[in-house]
Write a protein that binds this DNA or RNA. Structure first.
Lengths: 199, 199
DNA sequence: ACCTGAACACCGTTCAAGT
DNA sequence: ACCTGAACACCGTTCAAGT
């Protein structure tokens, strides 16, 4: 059989979702396609490049409408939720996307959209960048934890007392950071109890 | 030669610092000690367990005095800085510690001390736990980024326009989260401009 | 353009056996 | 208690050659 680059990515996504990141090897993908491992190097320069394409595909599939119409803070919440949902949709999605992001590969970084949203909030670029990466680190870390616990549960080892991370603690952490960001909003004093401007 | 478990950990830390996490293999550690790879399995049940011991060792070496005397927010800042410094002290330290933490291995989790500090701030346990993990995700993510950029720079590929993460953006992100936490302080209204209680 | 076949230089882990 | 030696079942990557 003769495949296109996108066919390989598609199959890699399936292997990832069904067998996890540890089993996502070049040899495994090749054998599932009925190819020799070396054939993959016609489509991708290295495994890292293939993984970056897989991460981009996962984020693409979770992409929704643009966030330009929303208020800056609603846009930030929407982007973070979209990112979380996209990564949760595939086994080890968060670990894969975070790894690709850490290596500076992949073209779908959520930092750009977040900086844009924060820019509409009137924040300086330096501050917007620091806030955006803080948010991204939180989302990656939290969703990785969620998926690790999902995995542990599905294997059967459920500790009763343990605090499980989920949508609740995600929103809590997210609003924590957002509250911190709002406090730096230039030229404004905040109403602490509602989180909305009071002047 | 005949080694103790701690000798193996010590050598592993050296290999990590000199050659990086990618080259920290069981075979590499064994050969540096003049042992067969199988000999390591007398001391550690698996590579994961060895890595957990290495992470613990790195955090142990960075351990300072306890933070019980400090105000809760000063303690949080101290714990996060200590964690950052400990991981920055060894090549790929952040990636290793974060990986071990994600797998639930290692005995030196910074979440405990952070929850304790936040408890002294009067926060509910659930909230304290969410805040602590948010802080830990931020620290792991930020320091991983710092070390990735350090590595890229030392290789020689320095992009000029790029925003480099460092101590400045670390403190910025940290105070961002801390500001958000302060806003949830029970039974208090905050002075937004100073970050200190006003009532 | 896309793939095969064979090779190279590695992995983590197990296990019987040695001292 | 600590280690050897050999094996098993894998890796990512390269490269000449095929269609």
């Amino acid at each position: 059989m003769r495949y296109r680059r996108s066919d390989v990515v598609e199959r890699a996504v399936t292997v990832l979702d069904q067998h996890g990141l540890a089993d996502l090897s070049m040899r495994r993908i090749a054998s599932e396609l009925g190819l020799q491992p070396s054939a993959l190097y016609h489509h991708f320069a290295s495994k890292q490049v293939l993984l970056a394409a897989v991460a981009d595909e996962i984020l693409d599939r979770g992409a929704r409408t643009p966030h330009d119409q929303l208020a800056w803070d609603a846009a930030v919440v929407a982007i973070c939720h979209e990112l979380r949902d996209a990564m949760l949709a595939y086994r080890d999605g968060a670990e894969l996307v975070a790894t690709v992001h850490a290596f500076g590969l992949g073209t779908r970084s959520p930092v750009g959209p977040l900086v844009a949203a924060l820019g509409r909030g009137g924040f300086a670029l330096d501050f917007a960048h620091a806030a955006a990466t803080t948010l991204v680190h939180f989302v990656f870390g939290h969703v990785s934890d969620e998926q690790t616990h999902l995995q542990a549960d599905s294997v059967g080892a459920l500790g009763d007392t343990e605090i499980r991370p989920g949508a609740g603690s995600f929103d809590l952490g997210l609003s924590l950071i957002l509250d911190g960001v709002r406090q730096q909003q230039p030229g404004q004093v905040q109403d602490v109890l509602s989180g909305r401007p009071s002047s």
